[in-house]
């Protein structure tokens, strides 16, 4: 009996002991700051940590939602994230299809394709900034070598090109992730299916749409969602390369929030926008989890 009692006691406390440290960490590092942020978003605090006056108010949310700068930032975020996902996925599929074939030097090509993922963001930003340089950059130098191009954009300082330029950098940085997952996905598609469809009468293009794409759809869903979520929160490239400029052309929500807080010290409205971003991220994450669950069901 004593043994059983002992075991019972252990059973009761074991989960708490195992989970306790994690729960404390989550509480201190995630929940508490979130609650603190929400609290700030409901005040007119102009600086963090100076205490609250006047009690609670929704006016930050009202002013944020009626501010065209906010909607510009939302738009930039959507274009930035959408562009990144589209570019990474298309480039990722193409690269994965190539790497799935056997050819001489595949190992080296594989490393080269994966390399951007391993380059630190700051290094990547500096390198690309140089490459985009209108006067000394290799990109414009290359473009001018093409016979039909005689004028080149000032990439990062032209509002028409800056967002595209940043999206390109982010695509370059994130597509290796898509390649890795898609390559794994491709290898799960049985060769028999390609052979069966070839005998059934499908050419290479039909085989891609009838066998490859359906076979990749689950992996694609995960790639798209993860890239979306990550792009939503991507701060580094924009901050380092354009600081949200020129004229707000690359002013994504996270950058906008950063400037609201640390340049204009409008902590209240910054946290209100942060809450909006949080809601958008939660929606995306829920979709992601739902997809993962539906995969487990199959």
């Amino acid at each position: 009996m004593r043994l059983v009692d002992h075991a019972d006691r252990q059973d009761r406390w074991l989960p708490a002991i195992m989970l306790g440290p994690v729960l404390v960490c989550i509480l201190l590092l995630v929940i508490a700051p979130l609650a603190w942020g929400l609290r700030i978003s409901l005040t007119d605090s102009r600086m963090i940590g100076l205490g609250f006056k006047d009690g609670l108010t929704f006016k930050n949310y009202l002013s944020v939602l009626s501010d065209p700068d906010t909607w510009n930032a939302v738009w930039v975020t959507i274009v930035f994230s959408g562009g990144t996902v589209l570019g990474s996925v298309l480039l990722g599929i193409a690269a994965a299809l190539v790497l799935d074939r056997e050819f001489w030097g595949r190992g080296i090509v594989r490393v080269l394709v994966i390399l951007p993922w391993a380059v630190p963001h700051v290094v990547a930003a500096l390198v690309w900034q140089w490459m985009y340089n209108p006067d000394f950059g290799v990109l414009n130098y290359g473009l001018l070598l093409l016979p039909w191009i005689d004028a080149t954009p000032k990439w990062l300082s032209d509002p028409d090109y800056a967002l595209l330029a940043i999206v390109l950098v982010n695509v370059w940085k994130t597509y290796p992730f898509a390649v890795l997952l898609l390559l794994a996905g491709l290898q799960t598609i049985s060769d028999d299916l390609y052979e069966a469809s070839a005998i059934d009468g499908a050419g290479p293009v039909r085989r891609f749409f009838d066998i490859t794409l359906p076979g990749l759809r689950r992996v694609l869903a995960i790639v798209v969602l993860l890239l979306l979520i990550w792009s939503f929160g991507n701060f580094v490239f924009i901050f380092l390369m354009t600081q949200g400029g020129p004229a707000g052309a690359t002013n994504a929500l996270v950058v906008h929030i950063y400037f609201e807080t640390f340049r204009f010290f409008r902590a209240g409205s910054a946290f209100a926008m942060g809450s909006l971003l949080l809601v958008m991220s939660i929606i995306l994450t829920s979709i992601y989890i739902m997809i993962l669950r539906s995969q487990e069901d199959d």
Partner: peptide, 9 residues
């Protein structure tokens, strides 16, 4: 085919 190779989707 031996393992049928039906299109799973």
């Amino acid at each position: 085919f031996q393992n049928y190779a039906l299109y799973p989707h």
